[in-house]
Structure formats: C-alpha cells, structure tokens
Design a protein around this nucleic acid. Structure first.
Lengths: 216, 216, 216, 216
DNA sequence: AATGAATGAGGTTTCATTCAT
DNA sequence: TATGAATGAAACCTCATTCAT
C-alpha cells in the first residue's frame, strides 16, 4: 500500500528547499527560467536550457519542480509584485475621477513597457494553456472589479452614464487598454507614451460619459 | 532569422496538386488539420493526427506541405472568407453613424461567436509565432483602417471629438471589441449578444463623442 | 557549402564526457561504430546498429555525437596510431636507400594487411565525402612529403635521376604502393607479401634510377 | 501458380522499350541519371531527382529500371565508349616502346581529365558496392593485361628487367597512373599535363629497366 | 542536494516503390 | 506507356525524465 494518498501517485509538486543552498539553487533556476522563457517563449524553452542557464545539472531541476508548468508558476510567483502596476488610488491624492483614470492608465502602460517581455510571455502561455488563461483571468479580475466599482460609484454620483452595464464596461475598457499596450510594447507599434495615455484616457472618460469639463 | 529559407535549403513549400484526386487529398488534409488544430491547439497537434483524421498515409502530408506551419497557413487561406465578418456598409441602408457602428459590432460579434474555435486558434498561434502575429496584424489592419477613416470622416462632419487621434482610437476601440469578444466566446464568460452589442456600441460612440441624440 | 555549420545551427558537436562512466560509454560507442562501419560500410551503417552493438539506448548516441560523420571522425581519431605504419627511419639501422625503401614498403603493406577492413572503410568514405577525402589527403601528405624529401636527398647525392620531379614522383610512387595494397588486401587479389614487397621496391628503385648494384 | 519462373518473384530488370517513344524516354532517363549522379554522387542521388531532371513522372522510372543500381549500370553502358581511352597501339605508328608508353599514358590522362566527374563517380560506386568494384576491376583488367603482355614482350626482347613479375608490375604501374590521375583531376591537385605525362612515363620506363637511350 | 549520464517514447521526415487513371 | 499521387517502412532526432553516484 503506497504511502502517498494524494490524488495521484506521482508527486506533481515538490517540497520547498530545506537548506540555504537549496534556496539559492531554486532561486537560480527560477531566474534562469524567466530569462529562457522570455527569450525563447514557453513552448521552445527546454528544461536543459534552463538548467544550463542556471548553472546546475539537468537532474537538479526535479529537486524543485515537477514540470515546465510548475517552474513557470514559480516564475509568475516571483514576478508577482513587479507585475502589479502600482495602485494609484491614494497616490494621486485627488478625487478627480479623470485624474485617477489618467494616473491608472499611465501607471499601467509604464508597467507594461517595463515588463514587455514578460507580458508577451504571459499572453503566449495564456493562449496555449487554459490553466494559465485562468491565472491571467483571475488577475485581470481584481483590476476589472476595481474599475467596475469605480464606474458604479461614478454612476451613483451622476458622473457617468447610468445606462451602461458597469461590469461589462469595466471589462471592455480594461481590454482596450491592455490590448493596446500589447500592440504597442510587444508587437512594437511605436507610440508616444503621452499620446497613448491621453487618448486612452479620453476614450475611457468619454465612453463612460464622464462630464467633459472635468478634463483638465 | 533562423527559420527563413535560404537558397540551399530543402524546398520549404510544395507544388500544388495537378489532378482532381490530388486536389481532393490536399483539401482533406487541410480540413483535417483545421479539425485537429481547433481541437488540440497548434502546439499539441501532431502531423500523424492530421493524416489519420484525413484518412491518408503519414507520408502523404509531405506531398503538399513541408511543415505544420505550412498547413496552418493553408488552413488560414481556406477560412479566409469565413473569417471576414460581413461588411455592413450598405447592409444597413442607413447613413446614421451609430446604426453603422452597431451593425458593424454586431456582425463582428456574431462572426466571432460562430468561429470561436478558430479565433482561439489564431490567438494561440499569433502569440507563439511572430510570423502569424504578422498575419493577424495585417488582417486587423484592414479593419482598423476602415474604422480610422470612418472616425476622420465623423470628425470632419463635426460628429466626433476632433481632438482624438483617429488612428490610435481606431486601434484602441477595435481592440476593445475584439478582446471582449475573445473573453466572451473563447474564454466563455457568458454574455448576452444584445447587451454586448449595445454596451460596446455605446462605449464606442461615447468614446468618440458622437452626439447622444443620434442614438436610438 | 551546404553541410557546414553556421552560427545559428544546433550545436554540431557534443561535449566530451565528464565522468569515468561517460568515458566508458563513449568508448563503447566508438568501438561499436568501428565494428559496424567495417562490417556494413559507412553508408549502410545505421545509428541504431551502433547503439545496439554498444549496448546503449538509441538516444545515448546523441550524448556524444551529433551525426554519423562525427562518430566516424571519432573512430578515425581512435585508430590514428594503429593507422600510422611504423616509421622505419632508424629501425633499419642502415643508410642503404634500398634497404630503407624496402623496409618502408614492407611496413606499409603489413600495416595495410592488418587494417584492411579499416582501409576499405577509409577509401569508401573518402570517395563519398569531400571532408574525409581531405582528411585522407592530409594524412597521405605527410607520407608523401617524407618520400619527396628522400628523393631530393638521393638526387643531390647523385643516387637518383635528377631530371625527375621529386614531388610528383613521390606522389605517384606512393599511389602505386597504396593502390596495389588496396587491390591486394581489400579487393582480395591474393599475392605473396614477399613478392609484393620485392616487386614494388624494385619498381620504385628503378623508377628513380637508383643504381642497381645497391640492390641486395 | 505464378507465371514467373525466374530466380525471384520480383523482376529485377526490365524489358527494353518496344516503341520509339519508349526508347526516347529511357534515353532521357539514362542521361538525366548521369547528370544527377555526377552532380550529387551515387548515394545522395534520389530517383525523384533523376526523373525530374529527365522530365518524366516518377513512376516512369520503373518502366525501364528496377533500381538505382540498374540505371547506374545503364549509365555505365552508355558511357562505355567514351570511357575507353583511345587505343594507341597503331596510332603511334612506332615500335619504340617508350613512344608507345608515352602515347598510352597521355591518352589515358587526357581521357581522365575529360571524364573527371564520371571517374569520381566510378570510384565512389566501386568503393561502396562490391558489384561495381568488380565491374571496375574487369575493365582495368583488360588494360592491365595488355600492359602485362607488353612488359613480357619487352622482357623477351631484352628491353626490360627480366626479374620483374610482369603481371604485378603491370598492375602496380597502372595503379600509379590511374591514381595519380585521380589525384590530379578529381581531387584537383593542379598539375601540368606535359609534366605529368613525362614524369609518369619516365617512372614507368625506368621502373621496368627499359634502356635509357631509347628515350627520345 | 547535486551531478550528469542514460533512457526510450514519441515525434518528424524521407523516399523507393506501387498503383489507379 | 506515362502520369503523379499515395504509400508506409525505416530511418532520424529530441528531450523530459529517471537514476546511480
């Protein structure tokens, strides 16, 4: 009778390292994985490339990860903070909705530009693998829900078109921004950050029917 | 550029069939490829699956195609018309811009819903392979440019906010619609077509500052 | 030059083994390759035959070699010493040119007879692949140049026909010996070693006009 | 009960063509085969290359030939005359043995230079396939035997060293000439035809001990 | 915990040969 | 006789994964 009682016989994730050396090796692997994934894409990346980039033996990979998926998850974990475009709620110090939206969009675009390689990678993996599409969706959800709340708030204050479905609008406008960012920074359709921010913000603001005069 | 073909390389595309039988076999392969690609995704699709789905010998694949890429290109060719969401210019019979935009969006969404499996596939391949990202971009371009012209026209007629960068707006709004369609029909976030059309149209119309009264 | 390696190509040679076990495995593969090549010829030898002869998995071949060419090069490396027919300069202890030539020819023929299977293989590969023709040529060159120097020396000492082009004669006489050896030991035209040595030596000596009385 | 009663069930050679069209097609195939063999070598030549070079369909090959070997044999047949270096017996009109040898060597070298591509091919095939080694051997035999007779004749007339084994010497000297020709015209070690002829002839004449004064 | 060699299933690709038209 | 498509055996090659040290 096997002692493992989990879903399958095969462990599909590994114990975290118990020694400082282990911690270091694992970190080197994750960092190497990010480099290789960003360079070669998820599909073409070979575990051998990752281990050689990390300077470890091929076999060491399995001390910490059970699969390419799993190390990719670890990469996502590592870059989580980096990915979270700085929240701008209080940053602006302003209650002007347009100022908030402008700041949010700008922060998002700057973050996108900085992490373009990673964003391309994320899109790639999400397009291939449903599990990671789910991850992306969960993340976008936080952002979208914040936008939805904000829209509802504006609607209640009479500052946004009340006939618009807030959830759907939040999704659609988020898509507009994120996908335009993808076009610009991943596909390389060169555009000026200021123009981009201004136009996207203006479209966003107009779309929701936020009164024109609010614009600076 | 590693994968481009040089002079000395083996031929990387094949002669078209010269007999009706050949035409049939090739067509069976392309059709089978579409089925397999849509089912398994580009990456996981095996040539053996395609040939067995087509009912041909494994080797017959190479009579018409040199690679998975190449048969995928052929699939794209085959579905080209299917993909072109019906142009709605005259269909509406109206000159009302909102009616035109509504009709355009609805047609796009219906087409997307019909071809969801294919659209997922396209996104997948475009995310993996730059060559197909380029193909997708070229196709979107036609659509986007039409929108840009339309926006400029409205601006000149005083029916749209003249301060907006028409090209960028066209891209951004197209992204909004296409990506929301992806969310809905590929990722399966269930939404009602009417609500979707209305909301996207309203956002689009508002975003461009097209006079409210024109609506409905 | 189609088969030469460019920068972007996959590595076309492998790292040497880093452990004794690896050294052993590699050696088994090289030895097996020699057996298979000598038995089946270069063209008909299959990598699967080599690995099964070596008692390794098929994939292990690629741990050490990138191609059939490459393991053949390794075989050549391994047999390099074996191939070098013992140098006879001082061996004879004599300064008599005829004795030196006799000893050289005999040593060459004996070596050829011993390594007939390998010599057939070499001829085969050199005839097929320019790269190995070059290798053969480089090796023969050392031998031929030694002969050319010897001829020039005899000419200066008045012991050989001074009107003969020493380099060309060296090549031609080397060809005479090596090709006759091939006829005898590879194609199997049975001949007695003594007769062979004597006749070839006599032809060689006469050809250069070395005084008859020096014989015997 | 099968109607074929030959050694095997499979016909391993084909009937000659019965119609003028058939004769032409066959001839085109043989000619194309020669082109392809000379260009790509026997091993790398594909039947598809031959048929496409001949401008026939792939299947037509088997109307006339059962295998690559067989069409190669047909190529050899076609070039038989071309290959036979002009016999020089009476051509010289002289009875001077040196003049005869000179003329023979010169004719051989000229023929070799003219047919270098073919000679490379022959060497290649002979090195690979015993059956064709045999063919080459049979052909060389005629030449060698003529030389052996000539040597014996000279020996009887007191014009050549009587202690030399005439058959072996004939072989060895033929090898000397043919292999030097290979070096020169196939491997491309550039040499002047006159020097080549003179040196080889002088070596040959000296080797057999033909009196010096006979030289022109 | 680390190493790097060994494994072999799983795919791709080629091309001589057959076959229906 | 000619065609060209279809065939499938037979190789090649890769790389995630395991394993002995």
């Amino acid at each position: 009778m096997p002692q493992s009682s989990d879903e399958t016989d095969r462990a599909d994730h590994r114990e975290p390292p118990r020694t400082p050396r282990g911690v270091r090796t694992r970190a080197r692997l994750v960092s190497a994985a990010r480099t290789v994934f960003e360079r070669d894409g998820f599909v073409d990346a070979r575990l051998a490339d990752i281990t050689s980039e990390a300077g470890t033996a091929a076999g060491s990979f399995y001390t910490y990860f059970a699969s390419k998926d799993e190390i990719f998850t670890a990469v996502l974990e590592e870059v989580k903070e980096e990915m979270l475009h700085p929240q701008v709620r209080e940053v602006t110090g302003s209650d002007d909705p347009v100022a908030v939206i402008t700041a949010g969009n700008r922060a998002y675009l700057e973050s996108y530009a900085r992490n373009a390689a990673l964003m391309r990678l994320l899109e790639q993996v999400a397009a291939i693998d449903e599990r990671f599409a789910e991850v992306r969706w969960q993340r976008g959800r936080a952002f979208t829900e914040r936008n939805a709340r904000s829209i509802r708030d504006l609607q209640q204050r009479g500052l946004a078109d009340p006939d618009i479905d807030a959830d759907l609008a939040a999704t659609a406008l988020s898509m507009m921004v994120s996908r335009t960012a993808y076009n610009t920074y991943v596909l390389g359709e060169a555009r000026d950050l200021d123009t981009l921010t201004d136009t996207l913000t203006r479209l966003w603001v107009n779309a929701l029917g936020i009164p024109e005069r609010v614009l600076a």
